[in-house]
Design a protein around this nucleic acid. Sequence first.
DNA 1: GCCCCGCGTTCCAAATCAGAACTACTAGCA
DNA 2: TGCTAGTAGTTCTGATTTGGAACGCGGGGC
Lengths: 112, 112
Amino acid sequence: MKWSDLDTNWCPVARTLSLVGDRWTLLILRDCFLGLAKFEELAKSTGATRHIVASRLKRLVEAGVLEKQAYSERPKRFEYVLTVKGRELEPALHTFRDWGKAHIPVRRAAKA
Amino acid sequence: MKWSDLDTNWCPVARTLSLVGDRWTLLILRDCFLGLAKFEELAKSTGATRHIVASRLKRLVEAGVLEKQAYSERPKRFEYVLTVKGRELEPALHTFRDWGKAHIPVRRAAKA
DNA sequence: GCCCCGCGTTCCAAATCAGAACTACTAGCA
DNA sequence: TGCTAGTAGTTCTGATTTGGAACGCGGGGC
């Protein structure tokens, strides 16, 4: 089955995942909940490539999870802020955060 | 950044996502919460290829989210059941389910 | 013996991703 | 005016992952 076919799945979980259920989208949402909003910030914080960030932001905006707002007219700059709809996903991130804190201890990258 | 580097990330959300944050893993977990447990069932229900199902199950078992239990000795058959640790992820799936029900209406696959 | 089921594994082509380079617009500075 | 820098993407190429189907394997059942 194609990943993109999920959005017509009978299961609401599958439909939700078709939108936010990939590696980076949830990480981007996490950053939005943390208050990050600019393209470069999101790219740096998540560690995703600009390519990925751009495509995910586009999809999230189209889905109405994020909103693209201009915070500067002259150089024409935008920031991405969560909509009400987007904020409703926060509990899931909290679950992941708590679960990670409880079950996946922080390790040194080098496994010192 | 590599996806696999996430498991040493300072952020508990990132670490959790490094384990369960991909397309199919969450869908497999959903099925486990629904009571599905056998390899073929999971493959059919999620629509993922057997390839994917096998790799995700392996990872989840290694992480202690699922447990591989023999339900038949003679033909040697296994089923995958959630551990306590795994069940703690359920709230996240509920969030996704509720969000999907509220914000992504069911559409016909053919857009009739 | 022969075919079927459950559970993976392997193979190949296609899609996706990582990483860096490149473009576009504006501002600051000389 | 030309040069450099910051922000926001887009494009390119090689590597990884995925999709889809076929194959292997250990038991049954007929």
